[in-house]
Design a protein around this nucleic acid. Structure first.
Lengths: 195, 195
DNA sequence: CAATATACGGAACGGTGTTCCGGTTTCCAA
DNA sequence: TTGGAAACCGGAACACCGTTCCGTATATTG
């Protein structure tokens, strides 16, 4: 994964300079294009921005999902890492859960089309789906377990379902001032509480 | 809108027989195709099923949304009509709201891709969006108002936002046994209650 | 500097929504 | 019944998209 491989063996024999240059250009171009036109921006647009051919995109990022993951990896990791920290800092596990989900919503609503791509059953987005799940489900599970243990929420909600629900609620947020995804997510999290 | 216009004037001079035949064939074909392949089924598939050319589809239904509305109009009307009835029959307004939303969810989860189309900002689906809103928002508003008047729920939730949230939660339901849209919707409606 | 592996670019392909127009069918009036 | 205008039909054609493929160019190595 890393460009600089300094392990004992060299299974990654360092890529050609132009390849590394193009990969960086592609990442920058995609980042900008996603902001301007959403994650559904046509592949050719990204290629033009980066000054490369479309073939080069597919060589570096076999599927659109790989490109999306590469662009947002840092932010997703940050979100995942924030889970345990919030659990330690918050008054109650439920408060930590609420704050963590808020972070997740913040991330999603600022990326046009990402929430929709996340739920798409298109095979091209399977990698994306898998990455989000791998990173976030365990964290969410930890928060849920803590809140259940504290007797704050019902014990029958799986992290997977909750995350998908939150993701779904974020679809289209930002396109319509009448639709407040954050508020609905808050309602959902509130509905989780034991009565 | 009606084929048989028996008003005083005849502003709709009765369509040609082949036109009516094709419109019916298209409606039947689309209904079947939507069940088999979802509402995103390619236009050509519907044309083949109906035994007509693609041009004929666009003549009768200028946008895919018009076709979807035509296919599901009866069920949507039934859902809208059920609102006042439930309000009269249920123990409390909140119960009526919950049961009505359940009806809406029932409808959405059995139509593959419809919930997604409903939230799409694609211009082709604007008619669909508008029809659902025109028919369902007033009903939902009535139920919400009653529940607020009864002191059961918070007064700051608009019907539009609630319906979009419910619609969003139904996206992808039925594709994945681990995702239970109905349960999340229940949670959302539960979160609406005053505490 | 030459040889070779590596990477590049963009034409080409298959699939989709949508438009357009020459030919056909229906229907009404004579 | 029949002629012809109006309405309608079919599918070719176009634009756009993701994806693949391969002849060419470039970087690296010895």
């Amino acid at each position: 994964m890393a460009d600089i491989d300094n392990g004992s063996a060299q299974p990654a024999p360092r890529k050609r300079a132009d390849a590394r240059r193009n990969e960086r250009a592609l990442l920058d171009a995609a980042t900008a294009a996603f902001v301007t036109s959403g994650v559904d921006v046509p592949v050719r647009d990204i290629a033009v921005r980066a000054g490369v051919g479309v073939g080069t995109i597919y060589r570096h990022f076999p599927s659109r999902a790989d490109l999306i993951v590469a662009v947002y990896r840092h932010q997703i990791e940050a979100c995942a890492d924030a889970g345990p920290a919030l659990l330690a800092d918050s008054d109650t596990p439920h408060a930590a859960l609420a704050r963590w989900i808020d972070l997740f919503v913040d991330f999603l609503v600022t990326k046009h089309g990402l929430a929709a791509a996340l739920q798409s059953d298109d095979a091209a987005f399977q990698t994306l789906h898998a990455y989000f799940l791998d990173r976030l489900v365990p964290v969410c599970d930890q928060l849920l377990d803590a809140a259940v243990a504290a007797g704050e929420i019902r014990p029958d909600m799986a992290a997977y379902g909750l995350l998908r629900g939150v993701g779904n609620l974020c679809i289209g947020a930002g396109n319509d001032p009448r639709y407040d995804a954050r508020r609905l997510v808050d309602l959902l999290v509130a509905g989780l509480r034991v009565r």
